[in-house]
Every structure is written in C-alpha cells, then in structure tokens.
C-alpha cells in the first residue's frame, strides 16, 4: 500500500504504467459496450409493460451509476491529494469532473425522454431525477470553482475540499429528496422496476455497466497522461519523450 502510494508520487512511473494499462481498458470498454448495445437494443425482450421504451435503461442506469461513482472517486482522489500531496490524484480528479457531468447529463436526458412514454411528460419531479439534477449542479460547482482560481495549487485544493464536502452531502441529499418525494407524491410508476428482471434483460445491463466503468477508467488514464505532458512539460523525461516521438 505504502509502496504503491510512493510510486504514485512519480508522474514518470504513472506515465509508463498507464501506457501498458490503457489499451486493455479501451479494448474492454469497446467490447463490453459493443456487446451490451447489440444485446440490449436488438436481442433483449421488450418489457411487458413499457414495451421497447424500456431499452433506454441500458444507457440510463450505467450513466447514473457512473455519475455517482465519479463524484465519489473525485472526493477520494481529492482526499489523497490533500493528505499525501500526490499530483497524479489531482490530475485524475480534474480530468474526471467533465466526464462525471456528462454522465449526469446523459442520465437526466435519458430519464426525461423515458418519462414521455411512461409518465406522459418530459419532466417529473421524481426522486431520482431530482437528485440527479442536484448532482449535476454539484459537478458544475466543482468545475466552476476549479476554473475560477488563477493559481493551480489553490484550484486543486479548493476543488478537493468542495468534492469532499459534496460527497458527504450526497447521501443526505439523496435521502431527503426520497423522503420529500414520498411525502408529496404517492408512489407512481418507478422508472426502474425493482421487480425481478429476467436474465435476458439484466445481463446486457450488467455488461453495459461494466463497459461504462471500463470507459471511465480508460478515458481517465488517457487524459491524465495528457495532463502529465501539460503540467510536467519542463521535466527532462518529458522532453526526451517528445524527442523520441519525432
């Protein structure tokens, strides 16, 4: 554990190891998302209640999972950055934020679109959609705060603090919104039926979720590598690297 943390201190080590790791994650993402898409769109049976509109679940749920996981990852990397001053972690947090916001937006959009055939309206103040909307605002806040500072170190630390504050609040927000929704709205049609799904329905969903996670890891690795080049461009080893690629 400690050895690993100490190794993370070296961007050069991370640059080398991520070069070996990232093709695997990209391949896994491509394979899983490809399989999940074909299976989910063409082969999974239609829902007996919602018909084919139920196929939105295969993008809605993975995006919603990822949206929450990315915020937690941002808080964890932020904490590691604050405690051990590991630059890689901050780079990762900075690179994750836009993807997290994009995932939140996908979850919101697909949820709203799904609402038309199921509820008959584009927007419903459903508990999940509402907490997703709040999550989007939290993401925008973190991104805006990071952009507002001129000094990179202050920006990193401020964004880390805000991500940690946000992650403590996310469960509180989630539970209070759930409570608020049940109070004001007698349970209508929940968007993802908790009832037992047949295997042909949930298997593609699982594949899509795994594919989205692989995509997240692959994209973060690639973008952190770019960020290393940007931030460490004065280091000798980065110069040598640029010489090699010529």
């Amino acid at each position: 554990m400690w050895a690993f943390i100490n190794k993370l201190r070296s961007p050069k080590w991370f640059y080398a190891i991520s070069a070996r790791l990232q093709p695997w994650f990209w391949a896994a993402a491509l394979l899983l998302i490809g399989t999940g898409t074909i299976w989910g769109l063409a082969f999974a049976p239609a829902d007996y209640q919602q018909g084919n509109s139920f196929r939105i679940i295969y993008v809605h749920v993975p995006a919603a999972f990822l949206a929450q996981s990315i915020f937690v990852s941002m808080a964890i990397t932020g904490l590691v950055f604050m405690v051990w001053k590991i630059k890689i972690c901050d780079m990762a947090a900075a690179m994750m934020a836009p993807l997290g916001a994009a995932m939140t937006f996908i979850a919101l959009f697909s949820g709203a679109v799904w609402g038309v055939p199921t509820w008959g309206t584009w927007w419903m103040w459903d508990a999940r959609l509402t907490s997703m909307l709040i999550l989007l605002f939290l993401y925008l806040g973190v991104i805006a705060l990071r952009g507002a500072f001129t000094s990179r170190d202050s920006a990193s630390r401020a964004a880390s603090v805000l991500a940690m504050v946000g992650v403590i609040n996310i469960p509180i927000i989630k539970y209070s919104v759930d409570w608020w929704y049940t109070l004001h709205q007698p349970a209508t049609f929940t968007i993802t039926g908790r009832a037992a799904m047949p295997m042909e329905m949930w298997a593609p969903l699982l594949i899509m979720v795994l594919g989205f996670y692989s995509f997240f890891i692959a994209l973060t690795l690639t973008r952190v590598r770019s960020e290393i080049l940007r931030r460490e461009s004065n280091k000798h080893w980065v110069r040598e690297l640029a010489g090699e690629t010529r």
Partner: peptide
C-alpha cells in the same frame, strides 16, 4: 425516445 437517448 429510444433513439434520442441512445444517440445522445
């Protein structure tokens, strides 16, 4: 609905 969600 399906194609706009997947398309986005």
């Amino acid at each position: 609905y399906v194609w706009s969600a997947w398309g986005l």
